[in-house]
Amino acid sequence: MAITADEVKHVAKLAKLEFTDDELQMFAGQMDDIIKMVQQLGEVDTTGVPVTSTVAEAKNVMREDVAVKGTDRDQLMYNVPQKDKGFVKVPAIIDESEEG
């Protein structure tokens, strides 16, 4: 096994995803196949080879520090699923049913 069900569970927690036991079994099996496939990179000698993180000709772009009008607040809030008086509405950060 390249990855265990417990490791898959840990990665899911980092990615803020949750799985049922059945899903966990399926994902663990598929992740194992995928990780075995990508592990073939181990056979390539990359001693001293630099990384490529971009293929763009990008360079730093500077501009004058001049204030410009931003996007209208109502516009920005347009797609918020739950809102109230111009604020984004979310449930309590602490679970009150458990914490009392």
Binding site: I3, E7, V8, V11, A12, L14, A15, L17, F27, Q30, M31, I34, I35, V38, L41, G42, V44, T46, V49, P50, V51, T52, S53
Partner: peptide, 27 residues
Amino acid sequence: RRIMLGTFSLSAGTYDAYFKKAAQVRT
């Protein structure tokens, strides 16, 4: 699946063997 593979490749302990290695082979 992709979010999981990406999170795995970037996480502590696997970053060098997966993400960095891939970025080198990309070169």
